[in-house]
Design a protein around this nucleic acid. Structure first.
Lengths: 342, 342
DNA sequence: GGTGGCTGAGAAACCGCTTTCTACTCTCGG
DNA sequence: CCGAGAGTAGAAAGCGGTTTCTCAGCCACC
């Protein structure tokens, strides 16, 4: 069989075959395909015609190797099923897509060891990395920084490793939430704690503990980051006689809400519930969830801008710390029997 | 500066540098790194030591080019923010991850033109593709089949293009839903239709229309696939005096639920609501959503198995059509004023 | 002791594209 | 009329791996 015949079934269409078909060198085909330099219009026409006829599509892998960049960025998140991260992901894909970049995603399932491996591997396949709320320790992260660069952090801050950070002021969010609950007369708050590895969980906890003593009683309950965690811990809240729940995130709040409903406990009549993040579901449930709203899609956008700057060796815009906006909805109300109000 | 010195800051560590440092050929380093053939243990030791000392990590891009495979698969979905797709994605990443494959994700935002472009581009960057509920026409899909292969379809079927399909028996799901509602005495059902481009929407609509005449009145309302769509259309349902809502999916059902609640309409007292998919939120809302449960994570797993088989040039397992399981929860109840029951 | 088979490692080709370098042609000015 | 300079396209050297091919060395066997 004549292996030089164009369009032979099994043979992949490479730049060489196009060059051959157009009667030019591979270099010229490359130039035409990239719209580079000035090529004789007639030659360019022949090349384009041949490329179209053969259905030529340059190999992205070969280009990546030659160019030293892949046109892909990776994002690593702790929990693929958390809409919070999905929205960040969405913001990121859209922004990156506009610049012709595609996204590799990896979920660590809250496992630090897996996270470390995934981050390193994902980075090697891409030009850059977005680490979303990484669970690994600061030391470990700092140690990997050189290997991972360029990368940007979302919901995490590690000074001195030269990675841009996009932050949420969890403390401010917590302060707003607590102020809201105190105004409603709540005196005994249960905090449903997130994963101990979560930096934002620590921020929130610190903010709660840092409140002037005597303003309210704080009950700290180990919980987690998912529906099921919130669902499982609700009974304990009741046993502790807290009148308000401050959940690590919206998912946990939903879980608790569901359990309370099962038990016939009225929300907010008997217990108020507050979430964190403001995932899209929060406004559509019954009752709608009071929560600290975090600009999730915006985080994704901003993450891309920082990463894009790094990829182009520009100086990224300075770090931002977003202040969550308290969305007061139906899941919070006056504490039972309380007379205080704002 | 001596460019041959190992570990020189700027210089990337390539296989050549390792070979040089270990005093062997690049071929030998390659063999050692891949655990291939038998290499003199002493040489292998030297290579491993050098690789470790230099922090060598083979370039995935170069490997991809040489091997002709990337170790990545892509998934294209219409809506990145729909938990249904996120769960499929989750199932897929986990299953693929076990075989050392990473995931490229792309969301078409329900735009057919974008979907076509994304699918083609994503495929070129990866070894295979999963098209999740593709919106493009059958002809177009068939036309691209050769370019996209190997790929597998989820929630879509196009006979004769040689792509494995994983299906959900939407008609059966609808039949169960309708039977359930009829038993509760509902006689006027509103169907909140999904995107016209959605094949599963057509399946559901056909199943509804195909019901024996006279069993119930069907009100078809154009809607969409998101919260906001369901939220916006709820008023129309009331105007039409339907006593039950059959929503295109859970998201739409939630939106409608939220709006009904805002309006003070009792669910299921005045209106019953049924979703489709059974996303995790469905069981935790108030009232919990009655819905046709689709094994989302399983779809992801199965998609990987089919794709993996194709990648290995094995024959994939035959297509599967999953039958949804009706999850009766709190959002459905007797039609107002109805005496009928099962 | 010569030869055949076998093992193990290096040389070199190759994957498909980009880009520098080089050679050639053509134009224009002195 | 000749040489400099601009413009164009091809040759070839990468990019960083893998793999075939080749060959040297060793052992065993006749």
């Amino acid at each position: 069989m004549d292996t030089s015949r164009p369009g032979r079934p099994g043979a992949p269409v490479t730049i060489g075959r196009v060059a051959e078909a157009a009667g030019v060198s591979r270099a010229t085909v490359s130039r035409v395909m990239n719209g580079l330099a000035s090529v004789d219009p007639e030659l360019a026409g022949r090349v384009r015609e041949a490329a179209a006829r053969l259905g030529y599509e340059p190999s992205t892998v070969a280009r990546s190797l030659a160019l030293g960049r892949t046109g892909m960025v990776a994002i690593v998140v702790p929990d693929l099923e958390n809409p919070m991260f999905q929205r960040v992901l969405h913001g990121l894909t859209d922004a990156a897509g506009e610049r012709g970049h595609r996204l590799l995603v990896a979920g660590s399932n809250e496992d630090v060891r897996e996270e470390v491996v995934l981050a390193a591997e994902a980075r090697r396949r891409c030009d850059g990395l977005v680490l979303c709320a990484p669970r690994m320790g600061t030391g470990q992260l700092a140690g990997m920084a050189a290997k991972l660069a360029p990368f940007v952090l979302v919901n995490r801050e590690v000074p001195g490793i030269g990675a841009p950070s996009l932050l949420v002021d969890h403390a401010a969010g917590i302060r707003d939430i607590v102020a809201h609950l105190l105004a409603l007369g709540h005196q005994r708050l249960a905090y449903l704690a997130g994963p101990p590895t979560s930096a934002s969980n620590r921020d929130r906890l610190d903010a709660l503990r840092g409140y002037p003593a005597g303003r309210f009683e704080l009950v700290e309950l180990e919980c987690g980051a998912t529906f099921a965690d919130g669902h499982a811990v609700a009974d304990q809240v009741l046993r502790e006689r807290a009148t308000a729940i401050v959940a690590y995130n919206d998912l946990v709040a939903f879980g608790a809400l569901g359990r309370l409903h099962e038990l016939g406990v009225e929300v907010p009549g008997q217990v108020s519930v507050v979430g964190f993040d403001d995932i899209p579901f929060a406004r559509y449930t019954t009752p709608p969830l009071t929560t600290a709203s975090v600009p999730q899609v915006e985080l994704g956008h901003q993450a891309w801008h920082r990463l894009w700057a790094l990829l182009e060796r520009r100086t990224p815009e300075p770090d931002v710390r977003f202040t969550p906006r308290l969305e007061v909805r139906g899941s919070t109300g006056p504490a039972p029997g309380a007379l205080r109000y704002m």
